[in-house]
Design a protein around this nucleic acid. Structure first.
Lengths: 224, 224
DNA sequence: CGAAACCCATTTGTATACAATAAGGATGGA
DNA sequence: TCCATCCTTATTGTATACAAATGGGTTTCG
């Protein structure tokens, strides 16, 4: 991909995910151009991409803002994600290779290590978790649209939610992954589908609870 | 929306849907700019939008082409669409207003008229069909993501498939709409969900059959 | 003859200047 | 004082020139 446009994309995306640019914050092309050290052209390009991925929104007069998802919208996103990933998991159970299964096992072992430290390594957990789900999606052989849809909802959701996790939730997540692996190993699509559904549904409630607590404290629950 | 960029978007999209630009055809920015009577800048903007909506694809070296969906990809799209719209139909059964229900009835009556003529009015059917599904989606109150997802898969699929319909398929479609209306009227979400699933599943097979026939004839089955 | 490297034409990417539009504040009238 | 309107300024949209990269064809060397 092209140098400048890609740098702008990566940098702006990073600033959003890190919280440097808070949800709802206005995004001015010229300012971003300066901070990315490119001209407005690649910045505009990056903003369109980020908009397509739901990281950025534009108001009626074409001004851009960091996307700010309401709890209802988050629930919708989780619901759809649950549907699609559960479907992917069902397909994966029928298609997964020995090699892929081993990789999943290995990743989940690393997840356990990451969250078992005295202070859980959340960034590492996030990355491993992302890898875990990505392998399942690949194995489902429903690449094209599944990827599109995941791109649409995975990052805005996943990358912000695990920040809410306490150790209990992290351990539950790990355990659910184990159950998924068992379902895959037995080629039981219905089981895998059901586990994935509850896995994501629980993640939503963990998010919603944290969000509620955050609101009561006057915080947004999303801060890094 | 902005004048030039919007004109380019509308025009290019129209050329793709009308078949003037065939699936797989290369899209050169300068040529499109000339044909739309704008500069390359708004054309590039339009291409990015069309790419986000899956009307256009780009290869590894950033060249753009009219999207050309394989039968497998079509099946994936139909599968996902069936899942999402069935979900929407279920929600709609619980939420639909009297007014919305009446509008659906009225539209389906018009559909019957459109397809009952000596030569069925396909463009009219397409438009009414689109309206019908749009109302259900609106009534599902799952606007944001459902709309995003539908935008992603509805046009490339729907707008090309009904062209394959013979009168029998059109009448079946009308009948399934009637059954949906019955499910809505009785607030039976599970019924609505099931009807919608088979409605879309059948549409896929109608498409696949026509596509197969088209291939055997050496045509692509998508011609206008 | 085959393959690899090079060169030229075509196409996309980027920067910049200028035009159009929207937001916010100042001004004036009721 | 309040509201409407105008004006200023900030921000995005568009055109254009030029830079970079890609593809295809030709040449050259083994």
């Amino acid at each position: 991909m092209s140098r400048a446009s890609d740098r702008a994309y990566t940098q702006i995306r990073g600033m959003i995910l890190s919280g440097e640019l808070a949800p709802g914050a206005p995004l001015r092309e010229e300012q971003l151009a300066e901070s990315c050290e490119v001209s407005r052209t690649p910045v505009r390009d990056a903003l369109r991409r980020l908009e397509a991925e739901s990281f950025v929104r534009r108001n009626e007069s074409q001004r851009s803002y960091v996307a700010d998802w309401s709890l209802d919208e988050m629930e919708e996103a989780f619901l759809l994600r649950a549907m699609l990933e559960a479907h992917a998991a069902k397909r994966t159970a029928a298609r997964i290779s020995w090699d892929q299964l081993e990789r999943l096992k290995s990743i989940n072992k690393s997840i356990f290590q990451a969250i078992s430290k005295e202070t859980p390594d959340i960034p590492l957990f996030l990355d491993l978790n992302r890898q875990f789900h990505a392998i399942i999606l690949t194995a489902s052989k429903s690449d094209r649209l599944a990827n599109m849809l995941t791109k649409l909802i995975e990052q805005p959701v996943v990358l912000r939610t695990a920040l809410q996790y306490d150790r209990e939730n992290l351990l539950r997540s790990h355990h659910e992954h184990e159950e998924l692996l068992a379902a895959f190993a037995r080629r039981d699509g219905d089981w895998a589908e059901a586990v994935m559904t509850s896995h994501i549904r629980r993640a939503f409630h963990a998010y919603a609870d944290a969000h509620k607590r955050g609101s009561e404290d006057g915080r947004d629950g999303l801060a890094a």
